[in-house]
Design a protein around this nucleic acid. Structure first.
Length: 552
RNA sequence: GACCCCGUAGCUCAACUGGAUAGAGCAACAGCCUUCUAAGCUGUAGGUUGCGCGUUCGAUUCGCGCCGGGGUCACCA
């Protein structure tokens, strides 16, 4: 549609010798009465041409050569918009295209097979995943799928660290809880992890090992506790991710950066570049020379690196592994680390433009109208597992994706739990199930042989002329563009909003017109429209990672 | 104090990257099932887009300054 008009208007501009002065764009007007597409070229040209935009528009229209069976109207409106209206035929003939592309409808080629990595969740195995991780999992997984749908070669990656201070504390907490099973007075470390899950892990250690750890040297016992706790936590993390339908291709261990010498390599290289120096026993990175406000420590005086160093090394490895587009999904609390990492990567000779950092804001849970305060240390925090238990994986994913990434997300548990029939996700799924039901009925009544496109050869979709039919078709045809804009802007909420609109448009069509009717040809055309709607809903749900049920 | 995100209907949020008359869902009110799923549809009401300047044909969107909420500012990750 845009392509067609773009060709025609360009030709007109050339005929008038206005070509190349401004960028020609078409947009879908918000208001339906303004037509199907609009362009503002006349207004943009007005300045350089020194003419009234409405007069210019008139000139352009005069030079246009359009086919009347495709375009039914062209008019000048407002300050100088040129509005185009297409014929119903132009739209409804494209239903056939949706049907023939089927489960592929909405897929695009624009990525050109670009090797792309999406890193997300990346929580260290020190506790169960929180609802915040859940939002990240939903966002990351959906962005990854969107990238696949737009023709990128995508790797989903989880980066974790099973060494360091946090893991040490995990081991000590587990060990203390274990010892408390035998001696309730055994002291618990001051900064230990308070959560119940530590006690559960300790119970597991006891059932597997009995009293054996009490007899061991403490260091040895801690080592054992660490690996048992890590194993248990990773198992639960993978389990809950699986419940959400998230599967990673690669789990990348930070430790491998040390054992393979990559960390040292980076430090040496910074020294060689004159970007690293020693001061007060620590190694500093001259981030000031890289456009930052102050220099940063990369190796502490204790000899341990700060998080920046492995992060930089890791990002370099991403480039070295051949990723052309690197997408990092981070929570708002990690925002401060990004400039250092990007500056470091740039200093090492890689283009930070190829790293897209997507930062999402936090999730607030509401229960009985009260905000649920959450802290990993304190015992009161809602895990992702619990949230899924309450509202189900589809609602969890959909809710997490409904809001724009940069907005705080408020998740009302009671609403999602008690009034689930009012969830938008059910609204969308219901539309899909309803269509499935109609198609089954159409088959029973002999309108078509099967509930797919195979029985619809030679159907004349031109028979669809009703307002709610055409409105639905137009909306369905916007699916690929919606996938594209959701992907390019890293804004999955565009898709949830869109699917809700499709469901609304379908419900309205359903309400206005019966599908299975005596007029056989019209009935078959409507079956085609139902099928096309079902495909768009199903494909959209697939991208969002939620189910599209055949019945509810 | 510095930097980042947010501020849109009573509530939760959209708004296709600067377009025309700012839209949905809850909540409120009034209607619609003898018929393919009423988990649905139709209508009413609800707004100075936090406030003020500026940029231009045109601003919820871009810039500056305030106000309010959240976040980050370690030799923690």
């Amino acid at each position: 549609m845009k392509k067609y008009l773009s060709r025609k208007v360009t030709a007109a501009l050339e005929a008038l010798h206005y070509e190349g002065r401004v960028k020609l764009t078409f947009e879908k007007p918000r208001v339906e009465s303004h037509g199907d597409l609009t362009t503002n070229v006349a207004m943009l040209l007005a300045k350089t041409a020194g003419k009234n935009p409405r007069l210019l528009a008139q000139e352009i229209i005069g030079a246009l050569e359009l086919e009347p069976d495709l375009v039914s109207g062209v008019e000048i409106a407002g300050p100088g918009f040129i509005n185009f209206k297409f014929t119903d035929r132009f739209f409804n003939r494209q239903i056939g295209e949706i049907l023939s592309r089927g489960r592929e409808f909405g897929r695009l080629d624009i990525g050109g097979g670009k090797k792309t990595q999406v890193e997300f969740v990346s929580a260290n195995p020190t506790g169960p995943l929180s609802v915040g991780h859940g939002r990240q999992a939903a966002i990351g997984d959906t962005i990854a799928t969107l990238l696949q749908w737009t023709g990128h070669d995508v790797t989903r990656e989880y980066y974790y660290n099973n060494a360091g201070r946090q893991m040490r504390m995990l081991a000590e907490s587990t060990y203390a809880r274990y010892r408390q099973l035998f001696d309730p007075a055994y002291p618990f470390p001051e900064d230990g992890y308070q959560g119940e899950y530590i006690k559960e892990i300790a119970e597991r250690v006891k059932s597997e090992q009995g009293e054996a750890l009490c007899a061991l040297e403490k260091e040895q016992a801690l080592e054992l506790c660490k690996s048992l706790a890590e194993g248990a936590l990773f198992e639960s993390i993978k389990n809950v991710l699986e419940r959400m339908g998230v599967r990673f291709d690669v789990f990348y261990n930070e430790d491998s950066l040390y054992t393979s010498g990559k960390i040292k390599e980076v430090v040496d290289e910074f020294r060689k570049l004159g970007l690293a120096y020693d001061n007060e026993g620590a190694v500093w990175l001259k981030t000031t020379e890289l456009g930052q406000e102050k220099d940063r420590v990369i190796i502490k005086s204790t000899g341990e690196p700060t998080y920046r160093l492995p992060d930089i090394a890791y990002h370099r490895e991403k480039f070295r592994r051949g990723f052309e587009l690197i997408v990092d999904i981070f929570g708002a609390d990690h925002i401060a680390t990004i400039p250092d990492v990007l500056a470091g990567v740039k200093a090492l000779g890689y283009d930070p433009e190829n790293v897209k950092v997507v930062i999402h804001q936090f999730v607030t849970l509401l229960r009985e109208g009260e905000q649920v305060k959450m802290s990993k240390r304190a015992a009161n925090f809602v895990t992702l597992d619990e949230l899924i238990d309450w509202v189900g994986p589809d609602a969890v994913r959909f809710f997490f994706l409904m809001r724009s990434i940069s907005s705080h997300l408020e998740f009302d548990i009671d609403l999602a739990k008690e009034q689930s029939e009012k969830n938008p996700v059910y609204y969308v799924q219901y539309a899909h199930a309803r269509i499935a039901s109609i198609l089954r009925f159409a088959v029973t009544e002999g309108v078509t042989e099967s509930a797919d496109a195979s029985g619809l050869q030679g159907v004349d979709f031109g028979l669809l002329k009703e307002a709610s039919e055409i409105a639905l078709v137009k909306l369905l045809l916007e699916f690929p563009a919606t996938v594209e804009s959701a992907c390019m802007g890293f804004e999955p909420q565009r898709l949830t909003t869109y699917l809700h609109d499709v469901a609304t448009s379908f419900h309205k069509f359903y309400h206005d017109h019966r599908v299975v009717i005596p007029e056989r040809e019209l009935s078959r055309a409507r079956v085609g429209l139902c099928l096309a709607s079902k495909l768009v809903l199903a494909n959209g749900c697939m991208v969002l990672g939620i189910t599209a049920p055949e019945s509810m």
